[in-house]
Write a protein that binds this DNA or RNA. Structure first.
Lengths: 338, 338
DNA sequence: TACCCTGTTGCATACCTGTGCAAATCCGAC
DNA sequence: GTCGGATTTGCACAGGTATGCAACAGGGTA
């Protein structure tokens, strides 16, 4: 039923040339005469020949596959980034092999092993950390790793994040300028660098104004957790503003404030998020938030990764780019704010 | 810097056995003695050996890679399905190579070629159609294709959808029972089977009640388009209910009705969606909608695909599963509705 | 014509694994 | 101790491609 695969040998036979000639025609930068190229291409088209990427990778040592490890896709930020990442890599002739880090986010270990089995040229992990031992295995295998939206000490790992400390500080300044007195913070998962950095920046920003958060609780990057924590924060700490660790949780918090606790946003409580995902701009939320420029982040991720893959020995890079505060209607705007 | 890759030969040498022995130890179902397996595994662990999937696929003819073609991820339905699909396949030892069909959804052609280059074992296309010629190429190559959430005539293609005609009919009945008189429909993209089937089912349902939609306009599965179309529908056709072709658009329509046109939902206009994505359950939308059981759909997609891959000559299947109407608060509920 | 230089081509091999076949080993029964 | 059968092992090759090396052709100059 399924026809036998057509190989470079078939093409060579039909064109009356050697197999190596065929190979060279399909290898950019190889030495082939115009005439030869024309003959081979004609035969190849007639037979419907296309080079076998897997066989090719066996000999070149490059698979043109990038492994992507991701743990959840319900936060809009990640599908968006995934789409951009895939497009950017596709343009460079690479493709994404996707791996879900299931369970409680800690099951990265077995996933990386499988990744290595596929001889990926590089790895991007989105919102997922790596053990030192794992980082070592990748380093030994010569496979560059870029942490996307997450940071880690290990010098062998590259990372691309937004300036979480600086961003959160801006938010603190904004809330202070808005005259809020009882400010709370629902953090991202404190087991993540992102969650910790935003908390640190936020605390620092308040401290500069002589303030301190009246409550800091872990939202774990989950909508349900954030909702229940928000309820507690309002009822027990009477906050007048909440900085929520990302937009995904912030939208849930706004829903809880409005529909569950019957409070007005921002009149009773101001809410600020982080990321500026698409839904932040939807009229239902109209969320003031700090934009993580995902286009730029992806761009730099690709650049960092390909640089290491193609030049072999480029040093890992730790990149933090800053993003603007997007002022919308979910938080009281300070008088005369630019 | 990067150590030379450790191969089955290295393991064989260390264990003092032949390379084939090593291969057999890592091939489930091959004939190996306990003793041999133990020796080989010890040596393999010591060296950190893992079989090279690419080299293996070269000889077995199976890559254990499934190609996924997807055109957009901003509709929550797709990231959700992608996550489930990846997990389900991962469990079976397969992995997803992702391809974005960029542009106006018609650029599937070049993408499929690239897919074939990677020797994928099967293809899943999400909300993307295929030309007959393309379907033919896949059939010739012996690669099964499953259309996810989209239908097509071609007998060589499998497909898994919800019962779009039946589902839309249920919605029509619900709106009619609710006493609505001027009912409009913002369709999904009419270039897609999904869009057309839902429209047909909806029309049929209204007809059974002696009604007809007062307006039918194409929302193209895009939020912006749906919004502007909704405005037109209200202003020029005074609808009292709108069936929107999916939840992704429906949430935008609700925002437009409420915040732009200052209408109350459902008091002034009822809105019903399709899919039951997570945001449909969020209090801000509380959207009445028809659930597409994505878990079940993914399950059947995997089953269909693997059956064809592994048994080689299973016939393509056309599956349409039906889903329940989820009644929430965005549409007037008929008196005494179960 | 003899010469050299540049640009093309073919030959042979390597990449890493799975598998058919034949040889080897094992084990128990006579 | 011998034999038969079942199980295990090794040998050798195949799968589809890229590439170093040597051989080759072509063309221009003296």
């Amino acid at each position: 039923m399924a026809e036998r695969k057509v190989t470079s040998l078939d093409v060579a036979a039909r064109a009356g040339v050697s197999q190596s000639a065929v190979s060279r025609v399909f290898t950019p930068g190889a030495s082939v005469s115009k005439k030869m190229a024309a003959r081979v291409r004609e035969a190849a088209d007639a037979l419907g020949y296309r080079p076998n990427v897997l066989a090719r990778s066996l000999i070149t040592g490059r698979s043109r596959i990038i492994g992507l490890v991701v743990s959840y896709l319900d936060n809009q930020f990640y599908p968006d980034a995934l789409e951009r990442l895939s497009n950017a890599l596709q343009e460079k002739g690479y493709h994404i092999l996707i791996f879900m880090a299931q369970g409680s986010g800690h099951a990265v270990e077995p996933v990386i092993d499988e990744l290595l089995d596929y001889q990926v040229d590089g790895i991007v992990t989105a919102s997922v950390g790596m053990s030192d031992e794992l980082a070592g295995r990748c380093a030994v295998a010569g496979i560059p790793v870029v942490l996307f939206n997450r940071g880690q000490e290990d010098a062998r790992l590259s990372q691309v994040t937004s300036d979480n400390v600086g961003g959160a500080r801006k938010i603190a300044e904004f809330l202070v300028a808005g005259g809020h007195k009882r400010i709370g913070h629902i953090t991202g998962w404190m087991g993540s660098s992102t969650g910790r950095d935003r908390e640190a920046g936020f605390r620092a920003g308040l401290k500069d104004a002589g303030l301190e958060p009246v409550a800091v609780m872990d939202g774990c990057f989950e909508r349900e957790t954030a909702s229940s924590v928000a309820r507690e924060m309002v009822e027990q700490h009477q906050v007048d503003a909440i900085f929520v660790g990302n937009d995904h949780m912030a939208s849930a918090v706004m829903d809880t404030l409005r529909y569950d606790l019957k409070l007005r946003v921002p009149d009773d409580v101001s809410v600020v998020g982080y990321d500026d995902v698409p839904l932040a701009a939807w009229p239902s939320y109209d969320l003031t938030t700090l934009r993580q420029p995902s286009g730029k982040m992806v761009e730099l991720t690709v650049e960092t990764l390909l640089e290491q893959i193609e030049s072999g020995d480029a040093a890992p890079r730790k990149i933090a780019i800053d993003g603007p505060l997007i002022v919308r209607g979910s938080a009281r705007v300070p008088r005369g704010w630019a």
